[in-house]
Amino acid sequence: MKKLFLSALLVFVSVLCFSQAKKPEIMVMPSDVWCNEKGYMITSDNQGVKEQVPDYKKAVKTDKELTNVISKLGALMADRGFPLKDLSATISGIEQREAEERLVMSKSGSTIAESLLDKIRRVAKADIILSVDWTVNQLGPKKSITYNLQALDAYTNKQIAAVQGTGSPSMTAETVLLLEEAIVANMDEFASRLQVYFDDLFTNGREVSVRIRVFDNGSGIDLESEFDGSELSEIIDDWMYENTVEHRYSKLDGTENYIDFSQVRIPLYRENGRAMDTEYFVRSLSKYLRQAPYNLQSKVLTRGLGEAVLIIGEK
């Protein structure tokens, strides 16, 4: 009897654990504007194009104000049940994987462009980026802080919550103290806006983008190829309809060679209760197309967290 009771308890606890949603991971990053103003920029070679990108590594290693802001936001978010991902540790992780990253390409040689920001997002697997910046205003002997905190959905880059404002001027307080005050004063408002986003996640799922491409490998397969009287584009469209939350997705554009879907609402969990991400969602489509009567091979590439590309034709 005791064993039966214990077994029942174990099953109950397991069910309870699996029904628990994956808590979004949050990471604080300085905004591009702030990095630019402070001179934390670096020239990057993006497939032959030189561009200025934020040097997050230099910023977190050298800027004390930034370290304080990240710590303070971290403490306040932890207090609300959301410990933050550490930007510094994430950058170190990326450096270790850098060599491996360069090898990620298809067997045909196709690569997918990914910025440093995309890499940080993918490696940290942060669902939400808190982008922070501030300016110290000096008016005579008085100092004040203009503070701006944005929460960005790492999947779509959309702003999901934001607070901004200028604190009271002070003659005596140090910048660090004024910054702390600004963070604390805005946190309640920020949290309530974040709550609205979480409520939407629970109801409507996570928003991502899905792109479909066709390998030009001479196989003759494209999105107009027919299977049982239906074109491949229609088959994919039907699959999206069946597998999105409340059938919510938007077909942006499409030809025989590509389809772009945006505002694709994917469920937060898989059927087994584990967390769903864009890659897994598109991989499910890949598996579906591998079955008869389609028997199509495909490759899944991801960009950041919120975008996946399915290239049909080969692996």
């Binding site: 949603a21 994956k22 808590k23 207090d79 049940g81 309640d188 709550q195 979480f198």
Partner: peptide
């Protein structure tokens, strides 16, 4: 003491915390 009040209301289930549901 608004933070203490908020936390106790969350514990009592009167209001939803930011991490409620996760």
């Amino acid at each position: 003491s608004k933070d203490a009040l908020r936390k106790d209301l969350e514990k009592a289930g009167v209001i939803r915390g930011l991490s409620t549901g996760f």
